[in-house]
Design a protein around this nucleic acid. Structure first.
Lengths: 269, 269
DNA sequence: GTTATTGTTCCAATATATGAGACATTAAAT
DNA sequence: ATTTAATGTCTCATATATTGGAACAATAAC
């Protein structure tokens, strides 16, 4: 009631650097955040993003029209993402660089040799995203959904990629503090992580042992492209009461061989 | 050099109905098409979409900044989608209505009983999208990527959903001609499809037999929400030389029971 | 060497996004 | 039942970001 600056627009700075479309940036941020917080109402969303209610509301409507978001039928609509991102992403994986095709037969062989589930993750910035999972023939107690993404330091697959990254990139990665998995406060000392990565580089694989109750343990190895750059991680995962450190180490030779076979398969096209 | 209508802007009509943000619509269309045609160059893309080169180029840059698209390092950049859509979609599936959680244990039991792979698809407009796959303990020769989507009439899971759709919606669905799988020209006569759907409704499941060389066959049943609406399909899939019609029919009781168990699990929250 | 494409940048014109406020409607609190 | 707070929805004047034709450079094809 005091100030009346109607129609004062925000600047592009809010959305991203470079000559980048502001509404597009806002819309994409909205999709990502709705996916994270769904189902969520418009006002709540606006508050969390520190954006005007009207702007958020308008964009939600637009995203609904284009089929990327949908709302449930309640009196107070709650928003969720549609199947569109999955469908788009599925196509992406399918044609992506032949990695999936190169990896599948090797992964299938591995699950039959070991009885355990095999996971394939692809690097995405500072995360690793699960793009394929083949289930072990043993009884499996955990089925990670394709599309799950973790910080590189949280999984054996991610750590094995991290270990072979060029020093400069590792440096950048370590610039931001990394928290231990399942903790919001417990920072991993960079020196500790560096030590572990050095050991991983030496041995050629990473292991990650979960704590007993309903947890899983895994062993992972990196996959390299033709220029020798690590870009994906292969890992064998199982219940942590069955796969203790001893059993994991026994799986190492087969895993490392499989990862190498995939790398080679990728290098010749 | 004749006409000089500089800066004449396009209208919102091009992008979509209602008061919808044009640049957002264009950007999303771009993401979807890039996913379909990747890797693709900017000019080629602009031509196929009948959009000005400059506009496409600018949006591609924006989408790169926001992390949804990426280009390979060649002198002539070719564009592909990043892992972002998968990561977003993964979160979507994870929290979606509890379906995945309700279905997983049932699917796991089913794969151990039958030895074959079990698929879970979610309806998305006139398509069904694969959101979860659990691999059979028998040797499996086909691993469909999560995120794959087909026309409802193309899979046993899709047909079983189609069969229980309200008449009005089925009518709308049949308005558009449906082609046989793997054919661009061979239309399925609506009457034929209607007959098959009636039989599926009677028996409670749908089957789909693939032609021998390197094909797969499956049997599917619908999953219903608490209001009795079919919204997902459960199916058992295997190599078509192992799963002939006879074997598929033998699996029917277990499949139907499993689908019912999931529906019930969904109805109580 | 010549020609045809492609990627990239510029810029004026204008169509479009913006966000404060107001209202109706629903949920929570008293 | 009545009040209070919060939510979804809409409108509108203004500022500005999007737009797309054209020109240029860089690359590929002939």
């Amino acid at each position: 009631m005091t100030d009346d600056k109607r129609g004062s627009k925000g600047t592009t700075e809010d959305a991203g650097p470079r000559g980048a479309s502001r509404p597009v940036g806002l819309a994409l941020r909205l999709v990502e955040r709705v996916a994270e917080w769904q189902p969520i109402g418009a006002s709540d969303l606006a508050r969390r993003l520190a954006l005007p209610k009207a702007t958020v509301h308008r964009l939600l409507l637009a995203l609904e029209t284009f089929g990327w978001l949908e709302r449930d039928g309640g009196t107070r609509p709650l928003w969720s993402v549609s199947m569109r991102p999955i469908a788009v992403g599925g196509r992406a994986i399918e044609r992506k660089s032949g990695l999936r095709i190169a990896a599948l037969s090797v992964m299938d062989a591995l699950r039959h040799e070991t009885g355990e589930s095999v996971h394939l993750g692809l690097i995405d910035g500072e995360n690793i995203v699960l793009i394929e999972r083949i289930d072990g023939v043993n009884s499996v107690n955990i089925f990670l959904p394709v599309g799950t993404s973790w910080d590189l330091s949280w999984s054996s697959g991610g750590k094995s990629v991290l270990a072979h990254l060029p020093e400069a990139e590792l440096e950048t990665y370590l610039q931001t503090p990394r928290y231990r998995r399942k903790s919001e406060t417990d920072i991993i000392p960079p020196a500790e992580l560096r030590r572990e990565l050095a050991s991983i580089r030496d041995r050629g694989f990473a292991i990650s042992v979960g704590v007993p109750p309903a947890a899983s343990s895994s062993i992972g190895a990196a996959i390299f492209d033709k220029r020798g750059r690590p870009f994906a991680g292969l890992s064998i995962t199982g219940a942590s009461d069955r796969l203790r450190e001893e059993e994991l180490l026994a799986l190492a030779p087969q895993l490392v061989a499989a990862a190498r076979r995939i790398s080679i398969g990728m290098s010749m096209d």
